[in-house]
Each structure stands twice: as structure tokens, then as C-alpha cells.
């Protein structure tokens, strides 16, 4: 799938330090349109720091970021969103007291003029548009007038994802999307990831659940102690190899030799 196509996102030699600690050390990776990349690593391996650099929360100390072939400087989350990089954090950033379509349009509400004068919320439009995007992604939610607090964890996840897609996310970064979900819901979210990928959205997925990542990712990038220690195409590797990369080869090899 990579072939001669141009990567959507490319990071080169990213370094991020906190005081004396090097959280990310000269990491490079790229993501192609429609590709799902699994970002793996133990706690403290630097995954979160890396995605926070990409999504504009942190500024890198060294290195370059290219998006759609052009070098970009991402200095704030708003910069990232403007480029089309959306991050779905574990807390989902939804207003639970508002309904589904209001959350999809949160902060970017569609307005209409009442008596050609007073701008008011255009509920009908927001509802229809939201319906369209949910249908396109095959997401089922009984009614878009339901408040988020009445939805299940998986449904909430879907709403958060739909919001990014509606606002033209080209690259979606998902932090532990299945962590807090039941089995059925996990499957639904993974199916959604596949649907998105088929529609050309690139996805970086961080997860501790190797099984999930193997199901949806095309390529896996493994970090350990801030460095990139491996990169494999999913169909050319297996969970054992990835685990040994994650925890450090010498440990597992030691065990095997014994």
C-alpha cells in the first residue's frame, strides 16, 4: 500500500526532552492515507509524548514534521486540528449534558437567521448532517437527540470519532480506544476503524491490547525507552515478536535460551 504514494504524515528524528529526561529520542515514522498504524510500547516508552508532539500539545526539541508533503510547525492543538489531525483522547472530550449532534458540532455550531436578523442554532441542519456522517460510518445510535450521558461507552467513542470525521480529519490519533469497553463494543469500534481506513482516513492507534491492534493495523511501530526499536508490517510478524520488541529482546531471548 505504501508503494510510491506520498505519506500523509512524516515525522523525522523527533526529540523531546523533559529536563534531563529524553522522552522521545530521534524517532521517525510515517503514515500513509488510509493506513492504520499501531503505536506500541510499554508504559513510559514515549508513545504518549510522541502523539502529543504530533497533535500539538508538546513542541519537539528537535526534528521535523511533514504533512501532505510540506513541512509544518504544529505549535498548538488548534494548529493540528486545522491541518486535519484530530486526536481522540481517552476522556473523549464530550459534553455529556448535550445531545449527540450538539457534540458533533460543539464549538462550531451551525446557525441560521431568525427573522433574517438574529442568529440562532440550526438544530435541524446539525441533526441531518450528523445523521449523514453516522450513516456513512455505519454507526447506530437510536436518536441523535439523546444526551451523551445516556449512551454506552462504545457509542460515545463513535460520537467522538464522527465529530473528527465530520470536520474532515485526515489523520486520526486514537489513544486506547478500546480500553474501557465491553467485548461487543470493542468489536464495533474496531470495525469502525476499518471503515474509516477504507474511506481513506489515516489512523494512528495506541493500545495495550495487542490482539486489537493486530486485527486492524497495517503496520506496527514499537517504541522502547523513547527510541524506535522496530517497525513491522502486521502480516509479516506475530504477537510474540512484537512483545519481545516491547519488553526488550534480551529479556525474552534470555528466557528462551534458558
Amino acid at each position: 500500500m505504501e508503494g510510491e504514494r506520498r505519506p500523509l504524515l512524516e515525522v523525522r528524528n523527533i526529540v523531546k526532552r523533559f529536563g534531563g529526561l529524553v522522552a522521545v529520542n530521534r524517532v521517525s515514522m510515517e503514515v500513509y492515507p488510509g493506513e492504520v498504524v499501531g503505536l506500541l510500547g510499554d508504559n513510559g516508552a514515549g508513545k504518549s509524548t510522541l502523539i502529543k508532539v504530533i497533535s500539538g500539545v508538546y513542541r519537539p526539541d528537535e526534528g521535523q514534521i511533514f504533512f501532505e508533503g510540506r513541512e509544518v510547525r504544529i505549535t498548538s492543538p488548534m494548529d493540528a486540528i486545522r491541518l486535519g489531525i484530530e486526536t481522540i483522547y481517552q476522556d473523549l472530550a464530550l459534553a455529556e449534558n448535550l445531545n449527540v449532534y450538539s457534540n458533533i458540532f460543539l464549538g462550531r455550531e451551525k446557525l441560521k437567521k431568525l427573522f433574517n436578523l438574529i442568529p440562532v442554532l440550526d438544530h435541524e441542519y446539525m441533526m441531518q448532517e450528523s445523521k449523514k456522517v453516522l450513516d456513512r460510518l455505519g454507526i447506530e445510535i437510536p436518536s441523535l437527540r439523546n444526551k451523551i450521558k445516556t449512551l454506552s461507552g462504545g457509542q460515545r467513542q463513535s460520537v467522538a470519532i464522527s465529530r473528527s470525521i465530520y470536520w474532515n480529519a485526515k489523520l486520526l490519533i486514537m489513544d486506547e480506544p478500546t480500553a474501557a469497553l465491553g467485548v461487543t463494543e470493542q468489536r464495533k469500534v474496531l470495525n469502525l476503524v476499518k471503515t474509516l481506513s477504507a474511506q481513506g482516513v489515516a489512523i494512528i492507534i495506541i493500545s495495550h491490547q495487542l490482539y486489537d491492534v493486530f486485527q486492524v493495523a497495517h503496520r506496527l511501530v514499537v517504541l522502547r525507552r523513547g527510541e524506535k526499536v522496530g517497525e513491522r508490517l502486521t502480516h509479516e510478524t506475530n504477537p510474540d515478536e512484537i512483545v519481545s520488541l516491547i519488553v526488550g529482546a534480551e529479556l525474552v531471548e534470555g528466557g528462551q535460551r534458558g
Binding site: P77, M78, I81, D91, L92, A93, L94, A95, E96, N97, L98, S102, L106, G107, R108, E109, L111, L114, I118, P119, V120, L121
Partner: peptide
């Protein structure tokens, strides 16, 4: 109940971080 400002107030009360991240 009808304006964007009103809607934003509910959003702030519901989840102030989400409101902030949504650019409100």
C-alpha cells in the same frame, strides 16, 4: 436556549475541558 452563546454555556457546564478543546 436558542443561540450559540447559550449552547456554549451548557457545554462549559457539561465539560469545560471539552469546551476548551472544541475552541469555545
Amino acid at each position: 436556549s436558542k443561540t450559540q452563546f447559550g449552547q456554549h454555556i451548557y457545554a462549559i457546564g457539561g465539560n469545560i475541558d471539552a469546551a476548551r478543546r472544541a475552541g469555545i
